[in-house]
Design a binder for these strands. Sequence first.
DNA 1: CCGTCATTCATACGTTCGTTTGAATCATAC
DNA 2: GTATGATTCAAACGAACGTATGAATGACGG
Lengths: 206, 206
Amino acid sequence: MTPPDTRTQLLDAAEHLFAERGFHGASIRAITDLAGANLAAVGYHFGSKAQLLTAVVLRVVEPINAAQSAGLDKLLARTPDPEVTELVEAFAGPLFDEMATADEGGARKSRLIMRILGDPAEEMREWPGPAEDTVRDRYLAAFAHALPALSANELWFRIRGILAVAAVDRVDVHNGQPPPGRSSAAARRWAITFLTAAMSAPPTGT
Amino acid sequence: MTPPDTRTQLLDAAEHLFAERGFHGASIRAITDLAGANLAAVGYHFGSKAQLLTAVVLRVVEPINAAQSAGLDKLLARTPDPEVTELVEAFAGPLFDEMATADEGGARKSRLIMRILGDPAEEMREWPGPAEDTVRDRYLAAFAHALPALSANELWFRIRGILAVAAVDRVDVHNGQPPPGRSSAAARRWAITFLTAAMSAPPTGT
DNA sequence: CCGTCATTCATACGTTCGTTTGAATCATAC
DNA sequence: GTATGATTCAAACGAACGTATGAATGACGG
């Protein structure tokens, strides 16, 4: 239990405040205060506020990508033709697992992803990206193989639907108390059911 | 074709910039510049930046709510037991119709809604709300009647899934050019198919 | 023509922002 | 113990922020 170094405390505080107030709404002063660090710490450890944001996003997204990738590997090692349900679970599951650790940390990460999905040009358009895109492309191919009747465009639309549902899920967990009958495990199951049915829908055409 | 008054030009510019950069990211100066108005115009016409935001949100959300409400009225006038597909279409359809008018205006509105979904405490927590909530509750009841096996919590989860898919849809229409094979009409149909299947999925339990 | 009201204008105020700087502090190895 | 490199600190910078104010401008009925 070594006391957390300033760098990680800055990342924690920034993750919290970026998710809660957005990039522009979270000031460096608020972040360093929450982290118990000096105002200049952000400049020293990350260079700038924008680079702090990309570091935060990277830390959130990376384990999700890794889990998604590993899940697909395991699936494809077993059979070349995974079921839609299995693909949905492997793709959407990590989004819930990684977001469900600490009850509040989960909502935080979710809100952050939500903001990323919604921010067109915000300060992060140049993203590290390679891993992210590779994983997405692999799932695109796997889904295309499992749903051969679907056009590429409609498939892409549906995959983004998965992201949307997963991201929006726990947004209001932390607004007021969580609704009584909800656990994160339940939300995960609901999402898998919901999304598997959605992905398996017959193609619309054009 | 009377030239638009300053008030509406401010609303247009603010809608644009709030959606694009968020509340904190869009400065009053940027808004008034884009609107071709004076810096003090926001203060004069709306009182403050926060009140301008609520005016913008109101203008975007109101016609959507009206269309959703009218659609449900028409459905219930025909039969007391509408199909899930019909409910999905009546609920999600207006989200696409209202967002599809101008190719860019649609993406704008969508992004704005996205931001509202994702912003936990941002400057709009006190919302006008009554109409909004009434419509949502009515659909909740109608869906509950069409899907009696679903628990209230899971139903609520699914309805928010509809919102998520609709909101996230056109977010990147305006990032780079729209993907080649996509029209807004196609996206609407895709969404209805996708969401009808999702809503109709068997209950997960618990 | 003039008075009245609504709107627009230039300008200023105080605050907060992101960033930078140079000195102070700490840890570690010699 | 002292030198060295990494980290933290208090302080300051100019810029941009939201808001308020009082004078100018416009439209319009008397």
